[in-house]
């Protein structure tokens, strides 16, 4: 983090080596085009450098901090850009060719994410995907699916709690 604060090339490269791919992937998922994903990725790492001093390891993991920045920027852009094409809702794809080097970390994180998602019901998966990957609010989801707002909120909460519990189960290993 000290290196990142100083704008040290090696520190930024290290951060990019670890998170460049998932951030870019998130951009593709939420924004739907390579150009938008590249712009998002650039903005995310620039923002991470600017905000590096605010990162507190006591509050959470580096991955949580950085991917939250990425997601917030992506959702902001999604809401702002009216002409953006929405991506397909696919949470679980085939595993791609094994990437090299730092990206082993990404595979581990992905494995954990898929295991956590496996704990959710289909309804919870669908709601989570709509909120997280399409930037839809609970009210928007409720109106689109014609279900009560309270039900949407309850399912979102229960889904996140299930994911959290799944994460807790794998952490002691």
């Amino acid at each position: 983090m000290e290196g990142l604060l100083a704008g040290d090339d090696a520190a930024i490269r290290a951060l990019y080596g670890r998170f460049g791919r998932p951030v870019y992937t998130m951009g593709l998922r939420l924004l739907g085009s390579r150009e938008a994903a590249e712009e998002l990725t650039q903005d995310v790492f620039l923002t991470a450098w600017r905000k590096a001093a605010r990162f507190d390891p006591q509050r959470g993991r580096l991955s949580t901090w950085l991917m939250t920045i990425a997601h917030n920027l992506a959702v902001d852009r999604l809401r702002r850009d009216t002409g953006v094409s929405r991506p397909h809702l696919v949470l679980v794809d085939e595993v791609p060719d094994r990437p090299a080097g730092d990206e082993e970390y990404v595979l581990i994180e992905r494995d954990e994410a898929l295991r956590a998602l496996a704990c959710l019901s289909d309804a919870e998966k669908r709601l989570i995907a709509r909120a997280y990957f399409r930037g839809m609010t609970a009210r928007e989801i409720a109106e689109a699916d014609a279900i009560p707002l309270g039900t949407v909120k309850t399912r979102l909460r229960s889904a996140l709690i299930k994911i959290r519990k799944a994460n807790e189960l794998k952490e002691p290993s």
Binding site: P22, H71, V92, L114, A116, I161, N167
Partner: peptide
């Protein structure tokens, strides 16, 4: 933290 887990779910591009 639970929500951030979702970031890694899509197949990496």
């Amino acid at each position: 933290r639970a929500a951030a887990t979702l970031a890694f779910a899509p197949a990496p591009a």
